[in-house]
């Protein structure tokens, strides 16, 4: 094990780590936004729009991120839509994640028992009051496990960013292996930084899941 090499690579990895996290979480934030809006459109079955959203969700859930990124990054510029690799990474992750989040939120909303809506109606609550006070909080709780799984899935998906020459962790590892052949050291650092990126989320996810499951509903 070449510790000297590891020390000298560290700053490069750190930089790549920061970039990966930044684009990754921005993409995830975008995914949440797209997902929530899409889920509402699907839940309320808004004409025309809900058809469009359905097509979008199916299209992006059934294709790999890598292919989506290639299309956005290499294909779209030919039609005059030119975006930087960072924006592309963020947008791609947001669109992919949005389709997953939409499904998750929608099934959470639909999981609320009809009797809940009826008993709120019998109390005189309006449709919007029922949605805000009864359906939404319960749907969020039901969805939380799947939402966390989505976040972890999306953070892992950031590993394909290097394909659109974004200087992320994978790019850095591949670059350094090519340059210096310190394969073991480079891969070790790669694994360590991914653990650093995902283990806290996984751990926190488990914690939130337990808290929400057994805390809010009291058990």
């Amino acid at each position: 094990m070449n510790t000297e090499a590891i020390v000298s690579y560290l700053p490069l990895y750190k930089e790549a780590f920061v970039l990966t996290i930044k684009i990754g979480w921005l993409g995830i934030a975008l995914a949440f936004a797209i997902g929530i809006v899409s889920a509402f459109i699907l839940y309320f079955n808004i004409p025309v729009l809900s058809k469009v959203i359905k097509a979008y969700v199916e299209l992006f859930r059934n294709t790999p991120l890598l292919v989506q990124l290639f299309f956005i990054y290499f294909g779209l510029p030919k039609m005059g839509i030119d975006i930087s690799s960072q924006v592309c990474g963020c947008l791609g992750l947001g669109l992919l994640g949005g389709s997953y989040m939409a499904e998750t939120f929608r099934s959470g909303l639909c999981a609320i028992a009809n009797t809940q809506i009826e008993s709120a109606t019998a109390l005189g609550m309006s449709k919007s009051q029922i949605f805000i006070h009864i359906i939404l909080p319960q749907a969020f709780t039901i969805s939380i496990t799947a939402l966390i799984a989505n976040v972890i899935f999306l953070l892992k998906e950031t590993s394909v960013f290097s394909a659109i020459s974004l200087m992320d962790l994978m790019f850095t590892a591949k670059d350094l292996i090519g340059l210096y052949y310190n394969t073991t050291e480079c891969l070790l650092l790669l694994v360590l930084f991914y653990i650093l990126m995902l283990l806290p989320v996984s751990f926190l996810g488990n914690l939130i899941e337990k808290k929400v499951r057994f805390g809010i509903f009291g058990d």
Binding site: T115, Q116, E118, S119, A120, A122, L123, G124, Q138
Partner: peptide, 15 residues
């Protein structure tokens, strides 16, 4: 609905 109160078989409290 405000004037007519209703109690259901399955209670349906908000969990």
């Amino acid at each position: 609905h405000e004037k007519i109160g209703m109690v259901f078989q399955s209670y349906d409290l908000f969990p």
